[in-house]
């Protein structure tokens, strides 16, 4: 399904830790910094709460990319939540390619609640990356069926 790169606006599910990334997103808003409107922010209490199931479900429902945004390393609000999240993302990455999804579509970043510019940068870079990759193969599969 060829689509004009500029017209394709990727849908990204961003699981945001309520103690860091969610607040960073809020302050990005307060700073009137703009980012892709295909970003769906889903509030979670901790990145460690995001299950593999949720990540895969997001892809299944048609996300072109999934972001897990956790607290900075060594400074997780819940001590080890960001480490758990990292492990889980690594686990999913191991078979993502096998099921036909490019591993670049799933990324984990660590950022603090005062890092609004970094939030915007991370989200925009992700959107750019996904634009290069094109729409999710899962979506193409559904349409081509």
């Amino acid at each position: 399904m060829p689509e004009d790169k500029n017209r394709f606006s990727p849908k990204i599910a961003a699981f945001c830790c309520f103690h860091s990334a969610y607040l960073a997103a809020d302050s990005a808003g307060a700073m009137r910094k703009s980012y892709s409107d295909g970003v769906y922010i889903i509030r979670v209490p901790c990145a460690g709460k995001v299950e593999g199931l949720h990540i895969l479900q997001a892809f299944e429902k048609g996300a072109d990319g999934v972001l897990i945004l956790a607290c900075p390393q060594e400074s997780c609000h819940y001590i080890s939540g960001n480490i758990r999240a990292k492990k889980r993302v690594d686990y999913i990455l191991r078979f993502l390619e096998e099921i036909g999804i490019e591993p670049e579509r799933l990324k984990l970043f660590n950022l603090a609640s005062n890092q609004a510019p970094r939030f915007v940068q991370v989200v925009n870079e992700m959107a750019e990356r996904i634009k290069d990759l094109g729409p999710s193969p899962i979506k193409a599969g559904v349409i081509g069926r």
Binding site: S9, K11, A13, D37, G38, Y40, I42, V44, H54, Q57, A58, K61, G62, A63
Partner: peptide
Amino acid sequence: IGAQLEFLEEAI
């Protein structure tokens, strides 16, 4: 969480 993800199906 699933209920929120449902909306990824919709076109932007």
